[in-house]
C-alpha cells in the first residue's frame, strides 16, 4: 500500500516538472511576438510605438536568453509569482485567474457533475430495459452529435429572444451591482441557467451511452454467466456488473474535472458569459506567454490531482487493485 503511494507520488512529481517545462516552452516556440502584438493595438504615431516596444520587451524580460528566462520562471514560480499578463497588461496572471475562474467553475462543475449522475443513471437503466433503450439511444446519440455551438445558439435564441425567459448575455444583469440579496442571487441564477443547461445537455449523451454500453458488456461477461448458472439473484448480478462498469466512467469524470480550468470558450462566446475560456483563447492568439503558462499550470495540476484521486478512488472501488499492491495476489 505504502509502496503503491510512494511510487505514484514520485511519478506525479516527475510528470509535473516535465509538463510544466513543455508548458513553458511551447508558447515560446510559436511564431510571432507578443510585445509586437501588444503594441499593434496602439493606434498612434509610429515614433511612439517604437519607444513602447523596447520598454516592454525589457520589462517582460523577453530580451534575455532563453535559458535565463527558464531559470527566472522557476525562481518566480517558487515565490508564487506567475508573472504579469501581456494581453491584460498590467494585470497579474493570478488576478486574471481569480476574477475569471469563479464564473467558469460555477457553470462547469455543476454541469459536469449533474450530467455524470443523470447520464450514468439513465444509461444503467436503459441497459436493462429494451423498450426504453430503443427510445433513449437515438435521442442520446442525437444530442451528443449535435454541434455545441448550434445547440447553444438555438437555446439562446429560443429561450432568450423568442420566449424571453432568460437573458442572453452577462453573468448578472448589467443594471445590477453585486451584493448579497435575493434580487441579486435570483438574477445571477437566471443568467446561469442557459449556459448550465447547454453544457448539461451536450455532456449527458456521452455519459449515458458510455454507461449503457459498459453495463451491457459486463452483463455478457463470463463471470456474469457463471453467476447466472449458479443461480445468483438478478439484483446481485446487476450490482457486480454496475461496479465494474462504473470504473471507466470515474476516470472520465476525473479527467473532465481536472481540465475544468481551461473553461469553455464556446459557452462564453454564445452566451457572452465571462470566464477563463475566452481569455485563454485570446491569450494564445496574443501569445501571452505568462497567461498561457499560468492557465496550463493549473490545468496540469488539476489533471494530476484528478488522476491521483482516481488512483485512490480505484483502490476503494476495485478491491483487485488494493490486493495487488497489498501483495495478496
Amino acid at each position: 500500500m505504502k509502496k503503491y503511494l510512494r511510487m505514484k507520488i514520485f511519478v506525479y512529481l516527475l510528470t509535473f516538472v516535465f509538463a510544466v517545462t513543455i508548458d513553458w516552452l511551447i508558447p515560446r516556440l510559436m511564431p510571432g511576438n507578443p510585445i509586437l502584438v501588444l503594441v499593434s493595438r496602439f493606434a498612434t504615431l509610429p515614433e511612439s510605438a517604437k519607444v513602447v516596444y523596447s520598454y516592454l520587451t525589457k520589462a517582460f524580460g523577453l530580451d534575455l536568453p532563453m535559458w535565463k528566462q527558464y531559470i527566472n520562471f522557476w525562481i518566480a514560480f517558487f515565490k508564487g509569482d506567475l508573472g504579469i499578463s501581456i494581453y491584460l497588461y498590467p494585470k497579474p496572471v493570478l488576478d486574471v485567474l481569480k476574477s475569471a475562474l469563479p464564473y467558469s467553475l460555477g457553470v462547469l462543475i455543476p454541469s459536469i457533475l449533474a450530467s455524470w449522475f443523470v447520464g450514468n443513471t439513465l444509461g444503467a437503466v436503459a441497459a436493462r430495459r429494451k423498450r426504453l433503450d430503443s427510445v433513449m439511444l437515438p435521442v442520446m446519440y442525437f444530442i451528443t452529435g449535435a454541434p455545441y455551438l448550434w445547440l447553444g445558439i438555438l437555446l439562446a435564441y429560443f429561450f432568450g429572444v423568442v420566449l424571453r425567459w432568460f437573458p442572453i448575455a452577462g453573468a448578472y444583469s448589467f443594471a445590477l451591482r453585486p451584493h448579497l440579496s435575493w434580487l441579486f442571487i435570483s438574477d445571477y441564477l437566471k443568467h446561469w441557467v442557459l449556459p448550465f443547461l447547454s453544457l448539461f445537455i451536450v455532456q449527458l449523451g456521452g455519459w449515458a451511452i458510455g454507461m449503457r454500453n459498459m453495463v451491457i458488456y459486463e452483463l455478457e461477461a463470463n463471470y456474469v454467466r457463471y453467476l447466472e448458472t449458479l443461480g445468483v439473484s438478478r439484483k446481485l448480478i446487476r450490482k457486480y456488473a454496475f461496479r465494474n462498469a462504473i470504473l471507466p466512467q470515474v476516470t472520465g469524470l476525473a479527467l473532465q474535472l481536472g481540465t475544468v480550468i481551461a473553461g469553455q470558450v464556446t459557452t462564453e462566446v454564445v452566451f457572452s458569459y465571462p470566464g477563463i475560456g475566452y481569455i485563454l483563447t485570446q491569450a494564445i492568439l496574443n501569445q501571452d506567454y505568462f497567461l498561457i503558462q499560468g492557465c496550463f499550470l493549473f490545468i496540469i495540476i488539476g489533471v494530476l490531482i484528478a488522476n491521483f484521486t482516481v488512483d485512490l478512488v480505484y483502490m476503494a472501488l476495485d478491491p483487485r487493485i488494493r490486493y495487488s499492491y497489498g501483495g495478496e495476489i
Partner: peptide, 20 residues
C-alpha cells in the same frame, strides 16, 4: 454608462433588438 464586453456579433445584435 455601463460599457459591456460582448463576445459575439449574434449576442450584440440580439441585445440591440431587445433594447438591452
Amino acid at each position: 454608462i455601463v460599457y459591456l464586453r460582448v463576445l459575439s456579433n449574434n449576442v450584440a445584435l440580439g441585445m440591440i433588438m431587445k433594447g438591452e
